[in-house]
Design a protein around this nucleic acid. Sequence first.
DNA 1: CTGAAAGCGCTTACAG
DNA 2: CTGAAAGCGCTTACAG
Lengths: 341, 341
Amino acid sequence: MPVRPPLPSAADVARLAGVSRSAVSRSFTDGASVSDATRAKVMAAAAQLNYHVNHLARGISKEESRPVCLLGADLSAPFQACLLEAITRRLQEAGRMAMVINAGSDPASAREALQSTLQYRASATIVLSGTPPADLVRLCIGAGQRVILINRDDALEDVHHIRIDYRTAMRDGARMMQRAGCRRVTVVNSASGTASLMQRERMFLEEMHLLGLEAQVWRGGSTSYATGQRAAREVLAGATRPDGVFCINDLIALGFLGSARQDFRLRVPQDLCLLGFDDIPQAGWQGHDLTTFAQPFDEIAAVILRNLRQTGASCTMLPAAPVWRGTIRPFMDNNAEDCIP
Amino acid sequence: MPVRPPLPSAADVARLAGVSRSAVSRSFTDGASVSDATRAKVMAAAAQLNYHVNHLARGISKEESRPVCLLGADLSAPFQACLLEAITRRLQEAGRMAMVINAGSDPASAREALQSTLQYRASATIVLSGTPPADLVRLCIGAGQRVILINRDDALEDVHHIRIDYRTAMRDGARMMQRAGCRRVTVVNSASGTASLMQRERMFLEEMHLLGLEAQVWRGGSTSYATGQRAAREVLAGATRPDGVFCINDLIALGFLGSARQDFRLRVPQDLCLLGFDDIPQAGWQGHDLTTFAQPFDEIAAVILRNLRQTGASCTMLPAAPVWRGTIRPFMDNNAEDCIP
DNA sequence: CTGAAAGCGCTTACAG
DNA sequence: CTGAAAGCGCTTACAG
């Protein structure tokens, strides 16, 4: 295996430009005190050698050029992909680098991944996935890592929390069901037990209750399209089929929708009202046209960027706005057998 | 803003364990010559201080712990997300880190992104997107970067190419159209001009021609769901509507399918045969059930991993296997007005 | 097997 | 504004 020649270093540039190493270093840092003349000489030499500052080495002593770790799992799923897209784009614009760690969704590999995060002295590590246990996150913080958690409910110190205002969203969701005149509502959730999913479920049920409406809960499988299909096949086959379903996220909702239409020949929203959460791109696809709530992907990314260097505990609450499309009747259906006044 | 205390360093561990810095370093490298006794002392001290080797610093002198750069755009699109998922997972398993650079899809930001890649002394940079111009890739190679290109047709030296066997796939695709008895076939492509998309188009047309079949080409817009919809609305409204359509990728195909069904009330595959490419998860969703070709995501990731340290030019060709689902008739439709023998 | 020393590529007080 | 020096956190010949 032939060996690559080493890339040019600052020393090489200094030699060629006839200046000191420090001068080279200064020429590449904004606001450092160098004369225009030397900077010009340095830049010329750098261009000639095709030199680029080694950010890895710079990061050893300079906080700003350290990477940011993104810790996630199941990155090909639409929600994760959207989040990753938004965060990496924002980081790139700000001249920061993102290291992405794709942990398996099992706790063991999440543990390992979160540990390995420490090895890169990241400015912060952003935990996208629900899996790493709280004590592990605590360990990282203890080791001096800045950690930003998205939608977790652990009460950890020195963590920046980014939360979505599920309460308001779920209140809206419950009202949608009410206005549509749904009388038998089911919540479809995965069995993953992820904090954000459980919160949505709980708050939706609470808000339904406040409106004097009851709802069933179906739980099972992973947070996937297939789970939505399975739920539909079980839930819709029963004697008392629901007329309103809140699926805990869009992926499950789309699976449910697919089965409801194909397997059960139901008309949506006439026979069945369906509500999702996330507003992944596929929710807007023709023939899906799913009513849902929009995750504020860009805002999440912006908050992360703003909090990269903050230390100490803090919390940002972001809204998830309803996205009205075609899977929920905006008003009670007049053709329903019986109407609630 | 309170400042974080610095993380413990190897020197701290050495002091606590009562050994030299070198001993600490050796204890953390596989196969280095340390006695079990000192290693044990070191590990105990490390655990006590919660010490972790700083890979960034290690990377300065040690090739193996350098990151790998993934350069892409539009990361929330399903194809890119699947590729990212496969590559980051594989890298993670091998103990390597992935830095992802999300360049805008315009050449200017791709240029900037590829440049910035040099700043991290990555083991290799993987170009996922079609955008960076060849001369820029050449510049990176000139600067000593190892570059791996996925599905580009530039004839560059010192590059590892990963290619998909479009020829075989397109031959299969043309035969599918033939066997289905399609007589008016259209290829729907985006206007992006990306190498892989153009290759598929060209080869499909060539293979059709070899079978004595002709095909129209429609091109427009970006490589998106919306483009597929637009194509359908233009192509299907014409007087001589096609009975077979090959969409250059699944995303476009699904947009086309959505419009064909919803806007034109066409039955697929009875009225229209539809073929995609990529086999993104959504292609398999109920109600889509798109016949397509499977991108070998895992194999691509495996090849990347194998070639991280290789230098010199090379090329790996990977197959894309047909995935038979429901949008193409397997045989000629007997109900068609006229049959070709 | 071990430590002192030189090195990786960078930055940043310090003194002029 | 500039350079020599010390430092960041690591590794690896080298000599014992």
